[in-house]
Design a protein around this nucleic acid. Sequence first.
DNA 1: CATCAGGCCCTCA
DNA 2: TGAGGGCCTGAT
Length: 330
Amino acid sequence: MSKLSFNSLINLKLTQESGQTSQAPWFSIEEKDENNNQINSYFELIFLKDLDNLPILAKVSQNSNDLNHMKLDYQLVSDNECDVDFTDESTIFTQKEIESALTKEITKIFNLNFDLEKFYKHLADTNDKLAESIEFCNGLRLFIAKDKFECIISSICSANNSIARWTNSTNQIKSNWGYNKEFIVNNQSKTFCGFPKISELKDKDLKSCGVGYREDYMKKSEDLLLNEIDIDEIANMNYDEAFETISKLPGVGPKVADCILLYGYGFMEAFPSDVWIKRIVSHLYFDGKEISANKTRDFGMEHFGDYAGYAQLYLFHYARKSGLMNKLKK
DNA sequence: CATCAGGCCCTCA
DNA sequence: TGAGGGCCTGAT
């Protein structure tokens, strides 16, 4: 077992299960430690871009009463055990290289470099209405996409859709056409799937995965991403440029664009405004007077600045946990 | 059997 | 520039 660990404030379970749209929650198991504290573990197949897209199964786990620590273990594809065997000849990278790249990737995915305490202090100092959300959201972090293309396709899929159907569709796309690999997890065999590359999804029957009319949007977006728009180049743009560029994709309106920019690229100033954020913002900041989605977006970006992405995440979760959401239901 | 879901696109003032 | 109707499909 490896000894990799992280020492930032994070509520792993909350972050995984708060319904963020960049990706479906990872495969999870719950265990108890010797003191009967709950330990939450999450598994996912990660591709290390810095190491020729080396596939690796990551396991992050956390003791539920210690939100300042998180543990990281991993398995290579060639292994069937939880311990890594670096004598395998198929492994052309050193243990150090792998662990360094994996640590970097996990840090990105769980947004561990973001200073949560500073964000909380900012809310308290400015006496923002969102300050009371901290009690419901302590340790909640953005769950950043591990694959930009996956984020784009699944975000297009999320529009006018239910979470259950959205999760189902993306999982089917992965298991049908993505890289599949079996691992032994918790003493049983389990298949993990990566998301297909752009070219691999080109001529596939996406409708069979239940995406409905969105298939058209996805196909045309794939064409653009293969021929005109460089998916990685967007990361080098400023927010406005990136928003304009990603909005060229069919099926990508303002809300989906901001989701992709926030969760796929880490643009923290994005404020994805769906119908719920609209209702919550109207209630909390406009005295209940209903405002449009566009105006909600303008307000969020102006009011929260570089904290807009986190503010949106906290607003949503706060409303859900405090009962406000039920109250605003129409 | 209707209605609706964590929007987008298109049309028409 | 913005308001409003239609839309795949599975769940309820």
